[in-house]
Write a protein that binds this DNA or RNA. Sequence first.
DNA 1: CGCGCAGGTTGATCTATGTCAAAGGCGGCG
DNA 2: CGCCGCCTTTGACATAGATCAACCTGCGCG
Lengths: 238, 238
Amino acid sequence: MSAARSSSLHRDRRLVAGVVAHLPLLAGVDAQRAAALAERCWSLQPPRGEAVVRRHTRLPGIFAVAYGTVKLSLGRADGEQRVLRLVTAGQTFGEASALLGRPADYDALTMGECKLVVMPTAPILELAEHDARFAHNLMMVLARRTVDLLTEVRTATLHSGAQRLAAYLDSLAADHSAPGPLRIELPASKTLIASRLGVKKETLSRLLRQLSSEGMISVGRREIAILDPQRLAALARA
Amino acid sequence: MSAARSSSLHRDRRLVAGVVAHLPLLAGVDAQRAAALAERCWSLQPPRGEAVVRRHTRLPGIFAVAYGTVKLSLGRADGEQRVLRLVTAGQTFGEASALLGRPADYDALTMGECKLVVMPTAPILELAEHDARFAHNLMMVLARRTVDLLTEVRTATLHSGAQRLAAYLDSLAADHSAPGPLRIELPASKTLIASRLGVKKETLSRLLRQLSSEGMISVGRREIAILDPQRLAALARA
DNA sequence: CGCGCAGGTTGATCTATGTCAAAGGCGGCG
DNA sequence: CGCCGCCTTTGACATAGATCAACCTGCGCG
């Protein structure tokens, strides 16, 4: 279930160590200790589109994405889903569930080729106990996750679909800060983006058309041009 | 802004120390250190119905409720609100915002007479740095908050109003575990409960009537009798 | 003792969004 | 090259819940 053939084992250990060492979680942590933690981690390279975590199962530890993208989604018994987050290279997930040792309440699916590293809970807790800097980083990551979820709750309950879309485009624009007439690329299919925004794909389609008919954006196959950042941001803040 | 007249100052310090020492956050922490932290905290006794925290302002630290109830609510510019949580004696709020030093994104209003203790961020961080047990507690509290918010997101986006109500009643029943035909008391006005559930008071009224017409509950002025816990739980889980 | 008001209920609409159905486009693979 | 399948768009319709408006009810206070 972990690494491949023994010939590539050494290479894999190096990859794991590299990924772990560069995580924000380990920023400022003594390299020896980081390496010791990495020793106890292992890598995973699940088939494309496979489940890494299934809800109601316990996590072996915190997951870090080495490359590729993992989709975190909340689901209902009847199959209805709501995408929570797309986790990309260098990011982690599962901190809260792993630390509490309670079953996850989301599914994690790989999207295409990807590799991830599992940092088991026990050594994480040990390191946190002996290294104040690490504990501090962990706290900060959890705190950030908390405020992110809070804004998620706010937008989900207090904002309209159009506002959520505006806010989302705005946040995408913040990352890919290319100058000029902002041109951003959607990180996934529109169907998936819709689920991320908590609407159906049909609704997203209509919302995009609406914003574009009002001159705020222009919609392409997979990229969006932001024509009027001002108004878009105003709509998002409303 | 802090304690009252100097005659009662001593009593107030004792109250602060007592509240702080009994917080889950300080469970298992050396009494000396807990006392030292308490030294640097202060108490607040805001007028009834007053704002303790207003969104977009920085928090001085983590808040703990000594007695009374504080209402945390997300709000929109136009005054529309969604209640997040009712914080009662012995509970805390503001951990994430305080630790990150970023402005709060909710309002905190006192409901009636109440007293709270502020634990300023700086000594919190210092204690976390020197005391692994405290840091651990803090992490766990943040992790718990994260999973709670996650379920909040799930129910808000994937469940119907009736399901949210069922789940809420279920959770109330879990606390007040009196035997026999479960009889629970609402912790606040129905209007406020409605806001907590993310619906309007009119809708809550209709939902209550619906559940009661289906024989699952029976509704009184301010208490609800749960007639069929089974079906209620099933509805909540759906 | 009656007034006034906050909270609650109820009924009649309205609206955003979901559902269902059908019909493009575009890309990949045989 | 052409067919097939996935994603997307579009239209007609259904529905949960909001909104608006009226009314009720118990309770505190003059």
